[in-house]
Design a binder for these strands. Structure first.
Length: 280
DNA sequence: CCCTTGTTTCCTGTTT
DNA sequence: TAAACAGGAAACAAGG
């Protein structure tokens, strides 16, 4: 199987991603001072805000909203009361429990939660040291990486709800094609990228929106993203070089649109879904 | 076992 | 010069 290119070993091309693994996210947090001094403290705090098992009922509710939004599922098609629980209870649910609680949407929710568990487990591993390196990259026009994106975890506002007032008393089973396609091994690359963009709280300056409404975004730490992607695919030799090849294949499928002249910049295409703020 | 999809690897050449 | 970008080819992994 493995190719034995007699050439130069298959040792990692000494990816210098380490230099990208800083944590600029500390820079845009309003609560500066003390909390930033002790990495362990901050790390623990961060972990509690992101690890599903520590979520409060409210956070579980927000996760539900977010997941439905991303997958464009009618919020009315799922009985929220079945998820009136905290993160610990949520994490104890089996795949079958999800199916019982949310019907056909159960598998999507189950997968989503699995992703949350996964990222909350590995992200801190990849960004362990919180060296306060306030580097906002060179970006003339725009300012901070994340302005007032809808805060997911710390939240206080029920972010982009499909329709806050959505009356619709009757359950609308009018779901276009919810659990259709077979999604091998969880998420696809473009979905992985999209989800990083959609969760600013877990996006330590890896990728940034250039034009939110147009779906244009830019990699700030290309190698770090590649490492994270590799982690998800259990491939420690992933590099931006290879990840970008996969990204280029998306042009033909119109999942991405070409943005030439601007390095590390991509744009979601007509076949990419779930990235718009109010695309519902 | 075969076929398809979605990458993953590798490589050569061009551009920034 | 060091990264990115471009694609063609071929290998792979997982599902059907």
């Amino acid at each position: 199987m493995v190719r034995h290119t007699g050439c130069s070993m298959s040792v990692l091309p000494s990816v210098s991603a380490e230099s990208q693994l800083s944590a600029p996210w500390a820079s845009h947090y309003p609560t500066t001072d003390v909390s930033m001094v002790t990495p362990s403290y901050a790390g623990r705090l961060w972990a509690q805000e992101t690890q599903p098992q520590y979520w409060t009922k409210f956070q579980v509710w927000e996760w539900l909203q977010q997941t439905l939004d991303v997958h464009q599922i009618d919020a009315a098609s799922i009985p929220f009361q079945n998820f009136d629980m905290d993160g610990r209870q949520l994490c104890n649910m089996s795949f079958q429990d999800f199916t019982r609680a949310a019907g056909p949407m159960g598998s999507i929710l189950y997968q989503s939660l699995a992703d949350m568990k996964w990222s909350s487990q590995y992200a801190p591993e990849i960004f362990p040291t919180m060296d306060i390196k306030t580097e906002i990259d060179e970006f003339p026009c725009s300012l901070l990486p994340f302005k007032e994106e809808p805060a997911f975890f710390p939240a206080s506002v029920p972010l982009s709800s499909p329709s806050p007032s959505s009356p619709d008393p009757k359950r609308s089973n009018t779901r276009p094609h919810p659990v259709k396609k077979h999604n091998p091994r969880g998420t696809h690359l473009w979905e992985f990228i999209r989800d990083i963009l959609l969760n600013p709280e877990r996006n330590p300056g890896l990728i940034k929106w250039e034009d939110r409404s147009e779906g244009v975004f830019r990699f700030l730490k290309s190698e770090a993203v590649a490492q994270l992607w590799g982690k998800k695919k259990n491939n420690s030799s992933m590099t931006y070089e290879k990840l970008s090849r996969a990204m280029r294949y998306y042009y033909k499928r119109e999942i991405l649109e070409r943005v030439d002249g601007r390095r590390l910049v991509y744009k979601f295409g007509r076949n990419a879904q779930g990235w718009r703020e109010s695309e519902k």
